[in-house]
């Protein structure tokens, strides 16, 4: 077990923040930054947009959020030039979080409502096809990524139906639509990569997932196994408890 040190810094590659930010993605970034700061560490945020090139040896954590269809189209074209770097980053053990539109672009292919096929990063073995209706509402899932059957709550709003290939789901749907409204899977995960439809945003009400990603990022940069010091999560747990009631679970 390696102790974390005040000098420790996580290097974040934030992809297209000015376009892929529709469901309050900046809340997730604020959670990364603050939960490091409260432990005496820091987050170094590097923003990448259209035309920029990404060096996979330079980042411990990657983030891609959701955007409107129009922005997603523009981003998809540009991602083709960054896909190799993102896959190399994942293979190298960097932590990556893809949310909402992000998970769609993390797969091999996203077929839009108009039938157009957008190539994705291919870092997660999945494909997404836009449906004629949107899957909207509060959602709760259960994941085993950070201990047995940890509940994750959020809100989903997506037209895409995602089908997984040779990749594990992020969690099992307790209540809500999930990847495709049919197979009860939600999101996808491999190595230190998570893709999910849950926003709300995801991390403020699910601090265990935030800390999991941060410990992965620190392990990537500094090696060994990292255990983060606990924080006072009273407010986080309280908001989590209220969100549970929105899918009919007890507070």
């Amino acid at each position: 077990m390696n102790p974390t040190l005040p000098s420790h810094t996580v290097r974040l590659c934030h992809l297209y923040p000015e376009r892929m930010n529709i469901y309050a993605d900046r809340g997730n970034i604020a959670v990364f930054a603050n939960r490091l700061k409260w432990r005496g560490m820091s987050l170094e945020i590097r923003e990448f947009t259209l035309g920029d090139s990404v060096d996979p040896s330079d980042h411990d954590l990657y983030y891609l959020g959701g955007g409107q269809d129009r922005d997603q189209d523009l981003v998809a074209g540009d991602l083709a030039h960054k896909a190799d770097a993102l896959r190399a980053g994942a293979d190298d053990g960097a932590a990556q979080l893809y949310v909402c539109g992000g998970i769609q672009l993390a797969g091999h292919r996203y077929q839009t409502a108009s039938g157009e096929s957008l190539a994705g990063v291919g870092v997660l073995d999945l494909e997404t096809v836009a449906g004629s209706t949107r899957l909207v509402g509060d959602i709760a899932i259960s994941t085993d990524l950070c201990g047995p059957s940890v509940e994750v709550v959020g809100y989903e709003n997506h037209a895409g139906r995602t089908h997984l290939g040779d990749v594990s789901p992020f969690g099992q749907v307790i209540s809500g639509h999930g990847n495709n409204d049919a197979d009860k899977t939600e999101g996808a995960t491999r190595d230190r990569v998570i893709g999910t439809y849950l926003h709300g945003p995801l991390l403020p009400k699910n601090p265990q997932i935030a800390d999991l990603l941060l410990s992965w990022a620190l392990e990537h940069r500094y090696g060994g196994r990292v255990e983060l010091a606990p924080l006072d999560d009273t407010l986080e747990k309280s908001a989590h408890a209220v969100a549970r009631t929105r899918v009919g679970l007890d507070r």
Binding site: N21, Y23, A24, R26, G27, A30, G137, D138, Y155, N157, H199, G200, P201, P204, K205, L235, S238, A239, A241, V242, R246
Partner: peptide
């Protein structure tokens, strides 16, 4: 039904000047 929009609000200038912030409502915790 989706309260994530409150994260898109720039509350920071208000927080700087607020003597007190009383929060209520069904999703005050958020």
């Amino acid at each position: 039904r989706d309260v994530s929009w409150v994260w898109d609000v720039d509350w920071e200038p208000l927080i700087e000047r607020a003597q007190r912030l009383t929060l209520t409502g069904d999703r005050a915790g958020d």
